[in-house]
Design a binder for these strands. Structure first.
Lengths: 172, 172
DNA sequence: CTTCTGCTTGCGGATTTCGCAGGAGCGGGG
DNA sequence: CCCCGCTCCTGCGAAATCCGCAAGCAGAAG
């Protein structure tokens, strides 16, 4: 099917150039190297980073600040959700009739949706849900997600065990 | 003397039994609050965190260090993979015959697998793949994953657009 | 040629990090 | 009961880092 609503880049009025994915190009090798350093340790001092990538401390500071301001990267603490009290997670595949992007926006607005991605394949959207317990999960999937206009059907994959979760893009 | 923005540690030591899962060193309310601070800004100074959670700078430093050592949390830079040069991503559902965990371990060992989780539902495993281009993705899915002993079948969902990616567990 | 952008060096002061020396609270023996 | 070991917190200097600023330089673009 070619009428897929993938053509967001031309028709979407609020498609700003700073949008998260479409436009984040100009990343040279040095910025890449800086990001790699911060992926190993988000608190590494600027001077140490500068030594590693061949830049002065001030230059690293400026580039990191710009990367942060541009939203290209963020420095945050990440945890295993189970450890912080969220016991039920699930990946939900969603089939949509009509505009996929508007449905995606609606799901993005839900705090329980940690991860929303438009996909090709037998699902139009994949959504990761993080909840506190079974009741919470049930409510989100059956009441909230399926209530979104355009959602045709959903299929749920409840997490049994998280085996791997890394943040090492670019550190290969 | 500090006020008490968060519940005192004497709340209830065995708040709720949970450590059954993949490793839940009981986290009290103060550590939770510290994590929340660092989820907003991974570089926030210890003194500022201490002011927010009602602890001294040194105490915050020790607790953060312990959380890091225990692997409960990590402070890292996260980016949109598209921005750093990985143009093809996919979620892959895997069906397994035999021991699911051994297959999961094999997939975990692959650098291209960013995310591996055992699930209930029509897939036994869900795996997120991050690749540089189409050839790379094709090779990983068709040559490497399907070559793992015990893999019965796979279904791929190629990412078209990443809509949301947050790391705000506990910050609700 | 001029402008603009980005990097470097250098500087000083404010801030933060870090190690270490106590001290308080809490069970478990003797 | 008291002592001991343990854990966690606090306080305090010393060292390192962060941060803003200024002047000079080089390359790219107009």
């Amino acid at each position: 099917m070619h009428s897929d609503p993938v053509a967001s880049r031309s028709a979407d009025p609020k498609d700003s150039r700073e949008s998260k994915n479409g436009g984040g190009p100009q990343l040279d090798a040095v910025s890449l190297a800086i990001i790699e350093q911060l992926q190993e340790d988000g608190r590494r001092p600027y001077a140490a980073i500068g030594k590693a990538v061949g830049l002065s401390e001030a230059a690293v500071r400026q580039r990191v600040q710009k990367l942060l301001d541009q939203g290209v990267m963020q420095i945050v603490a990440v945890t295993d959700p189970l450890t912080v009290g969220f016991r039920r997670q699930a990946m939900v595949g969603v089939n949509v009739e009509g505009d996929v992007e508007s449905v995606a926006d609606a799901l993005t607005a839900m705090t329980e949706c940690e991860y929303v991605v438009m996909t090709a394949g037998s699902f139009d959207l994949m959504v990761e849900i993080v909840c506190e317990d079974d009741d919470h999960l049930l409510e989100v999937i059956n009441k909230r997600i399926r209530a979104v206009p355009g959602v045709r059907s959903t299929e749920s994959f409840v997490y049994l065990k998280l085996k791997k979760q890394t943040y090492m893009w670019g550190t290969r």
